[in-house]
Design a protein around this nucleic acid. Structure first.
Length: 397
DNA sequence: TCTGTCACG
DNA sequence: ACGTACGTGACAGAC
């Protein structure tokens, strides 16, 4: 069946939410948010709208005179975004309060207060999957976006517990492990990176061990974090500055890290160069399956535009192939459940994860089959690996 | 309607 | 030599 029809079925099926849980959390948060607002205003010595970045900027940098050195500027002035607040966190107790307020307010207004109103008579919510929006071939999800349901904070996980399987069913989540780095290994043919995945080693730890020339067992948390930022940097078309920012190191140090990284993964460096050269010649890049992204700015004389174009060019064949692969897996998984377990259904796709709602008696068999399908759908020289988990709700998983 | 911010992969 | 990591969507405030 064509993907577009599968997506229509997923939209129609929807996913069950527990309205009571969401409303309960919201009511509790309401009190906490109001209290935080008062505390912030007291520390500021003024009543103002904490949600207004304009007003907040005045309070922090003019009224309280917190030094704004190193704070990024937007079109309208100093930024109050989270990474900037991080830089001045130790200078005033108001910063911590603002961060907590922001997290709670965001989750409350975007998810807790909105989702219950969108549920149908069966308590299910229905997204729209857009197949022709993104530049890389990914899907997008809107009204509501179910591809950005919180997970990173404790409260976020709690919100996920409100996404449940209906009675007699379980949720199965199947997600690709490090699919984009597997793709980097595959496309570049880098022997060391491929070997790491073939041996089921942790890629970030292995990378840290190599660039520091030590035993994997001797890798510290800090070293692993830096290596992780490097690995991500590859996927994003890393700049020295960008990596320095995310790893929290000085630019000279960043340069050295990057040099060591490419020394260890020389074929990755070569691959990235080749993608850029090809993009300049053709004016487009493409995934291994032939999906194209045109990048006219790749030959711009404006350095900023050209640098940005190069990052897009490097990222697309990686992110795009991951999107191609999971789409193929969706078609195959849909076929599988349709033939063997027509009561089971695929309900969500979140870029590298598929979520299914499955009758209890079919869980064991289907979980195994879905994993096998996802792993065998496309042959990479660093073979795909998928993790499958089962639960009564998404948070538990 | 634009900007800033922040949720996710 | 230039400002800075890829891809999305939703919300609140400012205008």
């Amino acid at each position: 069946m064509p993907l577009v029809e599968i997506l229509a079925d997923m939209e129609k099926a929807g996913i069950k939410i527990n309205k009571t849980v969401l409303k309960g959390i919201s009511a509790k948060l309401d009190r906490r948010v109001k209290k935080l607002e008062k505390e912030i205003q007291k520390l500021a010595g003024a009543e103002f709208n904490v949600n207004s970045s304009v007003q907040l900027r005045e309070v922090l940098f003019e009224k309280l005179k917190i030094p704004a050195k190193d704070i990024k500027k937007g079109k309208t002035g100093f930024s109050t975004a989270s990474p900037e607040l991080q830089k001045i966190k130790g200078l005033h107790p108001i910063i911590g309060k603002i961060e907590e307020y922001r997290e709670l307010f965001k989750l409350k207004t975007t998810y807790l207060d909105t989702l219950p109103n969108l549920a149908d008579e069966k308590s299910r919510i229905h997204t729209t999957f857009n197949q022709a929006v993104t530049a890389t071939g990914r899907l997008s999800s809107s009204e509501p976006n179910l591809q950005n349901i919180p997970i990173r904070t404790e409260l976020g996980q709690l919100i996920r517990t409100a996404f449940e399987a209906e009675n007699g069913y379980k949720l199965i989540s199947a997600d690709y492990s490090q699919i984009e780095l597997h793709i980097v290994a595959h496309l570049s043919g880098d022997v060391k990176m491929i070997t790491t995945f073939l041996n089921n080693e942790d890629i970030h730890t292995a990378t840290a061990a190599r660039i520091n020339k030590i035993d994997p067992g001797k890798v510290t948390d800090k070293m692993r974090r830096a290596a992780k930022a490097l690995n991500f940097g590859i996927i994003y078309g890393m700049s020295t500055f960008g990596f320095a920012q995310s790893a929290g190191v000085k630019q000279e140090e960043a340069r050295e890290f990057i040099r060591k990284y490419f020394e260890n993964y020389p074929q990755v460096a070569q691959f990235l160069d080749e993608v850029k050269i090809s993009a300049r010649e053709k004016g487009y890049v493409e995934t291994e399956l032939g999906r194209r992204r045109y990048i006219p700015e790749i030959n711009s004389t404006n350095i900023q535009l050209r640098n940005q174009a190069e990052r897009m060019a490097v990222n697309m064949p990686i992110q795009g192939l991951a999107a191609d692969i999971i789409k193929l897996a969706m078609i195959e998984a849909d076929k599988l459940i349709r033939e063997k377990h027509p009561k089971a259904r695929m309900v969500l796709q979140i870029h590298d994860e598929l979520l299914f709602e499955v009758p209890e008696e079919a869980v064991e068999k289907l979980a195994k089959d879905i994993k096998a399908t996802m792993e065998s759908i496309y042959k990479l020289s660093a073979p795909l690996a998928a993790d499958v988990k089962v639960g009564d709700n998404w948070g538990e998983i």
